[in-house]
Design a protein around this nucleic acid. Structure first.
Lengths: 202, 202, 202, 202
DNA sequence: TATGAATGAGATTTCATTCAT
DNA sequence: AATGAATGAAATCTCATTCAT
């Protein structure tokens, strides 16, 4: 049974990986067909439907996976930086880390930022644990609860920062508009710090 | 000759309006076919291709048109409010006005905010005047030049605000996430004021 | 598995046969649409594209098939005529046989002679064996190697005769120009014999 | 009237020349549309239909023109070669001249040899004079009547040579099959001389 | 004569999904 | 569980031809 399950997991992963490649470096999501995916993954067309409902299903799973992986990397790095103590500094650390990941992997950025909505972010990353092994609720509790400074509405704060980061990263990193990221970064960091401070209680 | 040209403009507008209706209140952009558009617009299929290259072409023209129209309305309203004098207040006025428009016309919001990129915003609204009769450069010059307070990089400032507004409006107005707009609005206004203040020189 | 493969071969043949009928006795190649073919063959439109790239693909396969079949018939008949011994007589026998086939099947002639090029003739009939089970190389080796009389360049000789026969047959059999085939035939035979003799060595 | 007629002739020629360019060096006959032709020729679409019935009409006119021009050049050159006296030598001279023209202008060859049928050759070049100012009947009368050697059926002889030349030129000059023209030429000349001699009376 | 906007039938091609094996 | 042949609706786009100006 375990061997069969392994085999199934292998097929599923092959499909996910191939789909991601095609969505990002291939013809893009709309123009990639199920045929493209199964051909490259080396499975039969019918097999696709054993694992995913349709193309939108596999895309949403991928967004969840990739978003989870990004935050996992960022928060792991944060844990190693024990000297970063204030909420503000921690968020800026994570944000900078994520900007860095996006600069290194532009196709990932294109995929995530065009598709990640707060709904997916919240449902998949925080509430459910379908595509990830990490419970991000803890991470956020850690972030805000163990802080002297209190904030009006942590969820709203995170929401605003996530939207701000993903939309500005997209334009700057992929198109250099209105400035290249290295030039734009100081403005972005200032803006994010300002957004955070605006929610401070006392 | 004029009669023919009038007729052409009429046809073109019929196509644009029909397309917008179908993209927003109909089956959405992807599922709307050229056939759907021409059938409803009452022209032959070939006629579509006399005026637009393909579905993406007509969509981009529409985004430009609609974005221009939104900013035209907002800045016109601002002109009537002679007592709003500081840059900060003016921007907040415009932003609030735009949030208001979006709340009244959610389909417009859905259409604009998923499609408006800084590239289109800058090129179509500021640089070119293909789909609009207004020169928005003047508007922005007015905004920043006639102000006592100076800002580090006005273009970057506008960029950050546009991205912030369009992405937060989308989530809140269309999905009520993380809060309904009336609850979220104070946070957003505060955040925007903070972003602006962060760029103040002196 | 065999049952599926049989079925596939059946479908493919149904498409080939229907296409040939429509190209020759129907509206002709240009005016015959893929829809026409699949409708008559009783398969779905998509099925066509499982077996052939496009209309040109199926036409080329047909030319190869039909050309192979013509030569197979002619050379089989030749084998039965054991008393025809000289190369010259053998070629004239084949040529006459082919003219005869063309007269009996004018649609076949129209199809073949407008489309058969030396390239297809050589590649499909002699080099490859995609659409035929017969190796025509042997036939030609037989023809020239087992002969006392030698010829300068057998391939060039065959080339000239094939071009001569297919272009003259077309004009005479289909349009009676410049003469009907029964009147023209003596001139053609003489000409072919002359062409052959002109390449004799010694 | 004359000026208007000149203008008409100018338009007609512009269309013919443009069509020839597009048929030969552009997308080929099938893929060239009336739109392509009128756009390049700089006239309106409706104008095309004032001069030609359809695309097939303009093609046939072109074949006639080009074929006439080829034979005009060849026979003019022959007139200057007063020392070529026998019918056989004269025909070989013309044939060589034509092969030469085809080698210099491969697009012309492709166009002519795929489209020239004995029907067009005879009707347009010999019987009618729609697209040419020369009466080729005289040329052929000259050729055969002023000769000591007589031939069984001059028209059949010319027919066989025209078909032989155009089909062999096509394969050799355009595809180098079965040999490049410089290598193939001796075989072709021999074959043509043999064909002619085969029709000699006495 | 000349124009070129408009037509709309129809051609090619794709592709998600099913289902017998 | 896995396959992949078959489907056929539907999408995009072309283009010869007409006709009001």
């Amino acid at each position: 049974m375990s061997k069969i399950d392994d085999n199934k997991q292998l097929k599923r992963n092959a499909l996910l990986n191939t789909a991601f490649d095609l969505f990002t470096t291939g013809k893009g999501f709309q123009k990639t067909s199920i045929s493209d995916i199964v051909d490259r993954a080396g499975v039969a067309k019918g097999t696709f439907y054993l694992y995913f409902k349709d193309k939108y299903d596999i895309r949403n799973r991928l967004i969840a996976r990739k978003a989870a992986s990004i935050f996992l990397k960022a928060t792991s790095a944060l844990k190693r930086h024990k000297d970063t103590t204030s909420v503000e500094d921690k968020i800026i650390f994570i944000v900078d880390y994520v900007y860095g990941l996006f600069e290194k992997d532009k196709t990932l950025l294109g995929f995530i930022s065009k598709n990640l909505s707060w709904g997916i972010f919240k449902n998949v990353l925080i509430n459910s644990r379908e595509e990830t092994d990490v419970d991000f609720r803890e991470v956020f509790l850690d972030l805000f609860n163990n802080s002297d400074v209190k904030y009006q509405n942590p969820e709203v704060l995170i929401f605003m920062i996530v939207e701000f980061v993903s939309s500005t990263a997209y334009s700057s990193i992929l198109y250099g508009e209105p400035l290249e990221m290295n030039e734009l970064k100081p403005y972005l960091d200032t803006a994010i710090r300002q957004i955070i401070q605006g929610q401070r209680v006392n």
